[in-house]
Simulated scan of single mutants.
Amino acid sequence: MRRTAAALLLALTCCAGPAPVAAQATLQEAVAEVRGAVQAVVPLAPVVDRSEDRVSDAAVAHIIRWEITSPAYYERRLRSPIWPGGASGVTWCVGYDGGHQSAPVIRRDWAGHRAVARLATTAGITGTKARDVLPRYRDIVTPYDYCARIFRDVTLPAYHRLARRTFADGWELLPEDAQGTLTATVYNRGASMVGSRRSEMVTLRDVCVPRGDVRCMAAQYRAMCRIWRGTINEAGLCGRYNDAARLAESAK
């Protein structure tokens, strides 16, 4: 089952195609802006075999596309660990930040990785210290198919549970793809509802989701663009949330 899911994920994400070079750079900058903060507050949990933790294939493809562009781009540029910047630690796969995990968690999540013992030593190393130690880990390779499986089976269920708790009122009224857009939003932006930058999140929680209104959700995703307008992240993050809006609207 897991192998089948990974193969389907690969097929879905291949269909999106690679983004232009400029868009790839903008996307990586956008990811770096939020990754450290999100990973710091959302611990990655082991997979639990519960149907409610399943993220739809379309939503997984959406997240993968906006995190790494495509499997081909991942294989060219992201097979080895990177340091996204800021408060991040040594990071591999789809935003798995070793600096914000404990060594036992890394060993559990990546038990099948041939370099798991070395990856576990990245635990707790963040910021410029992570930047400085990165060369020690650049020879470690995580192939896309393995990365995709761990991302889907280990990483996403934790964020899906967080999204379900955050948007609990009306969650069950939503189609799987619409639920997946909320998981994608929490993965990218966290679950905080505090501050003017979070007004669309509050409307999602208090108005759209309780009504099961996917058009309302789409409108809030598009409205989020005002947060990044005029910044270096506008193209990447506005594109991401316009895509989320389309996925919500098409959800059945």
Rank of each mutant, 00 (worst) to 15 (best):
V133Y: 13
R164D: 07
H160T: 06
A168P: 07
H160C: 10
R152S: 13
G190F: 07
Y137N: 06
R161V: 06
L173M: 08
I140W: 03
N188D: 10
I140C: 04
L182G: 02
R149G: 15
Q179M: 05
I125A: 12
L134M: 12
A168D: 12
G195Q: 09
A163L: 07
A184M: 00
P143L: 01
R197D: 14
Y137S: 07
V186L: 07
R161G: 10
R138T: 14
G170C: 09
A158V: 06
T126M: 11
D153E: 15
R165W: 03
D132H: 14
T181M: 02
G127Q: 14
T181F: 03
P143H: 02
T185C: 02
T126W: 11
I125Y: 10
T128K: 15
R136E: 15
L174S: 02
Y137I: 07
Y137Q: 05
P135C: 09
A163V: 05
A148Y: 08
L162Q: 11
R136F: 03
L182M: 01
L182H: 01
Q179G: 01
Y187W: 13
L134I: 13
A184L: 00
T166I: 02
I125K: 14
F151Q: 06
I125Q: 12
R152P: 09
A191I: 00
R165M: 09
P135N: 09
G195A: 10
A158Y: 05
S196W: 08
D177M: 05
D153Y: 07
Q179S: 01
A184G: 06
G195Y: 10
F151M: 10
S199W: 10
R149E: 14
S199N: 11
V133Q: 13
T142M: 04
A168M: 04
E176L: 11
N188A: 11
P175T: 01
D145C: 05
N188Y: 09
A178N: 07
D145E: 10
R161N: 08
R152A: 15
A168S: 14
P143W: 01
R131A: 15
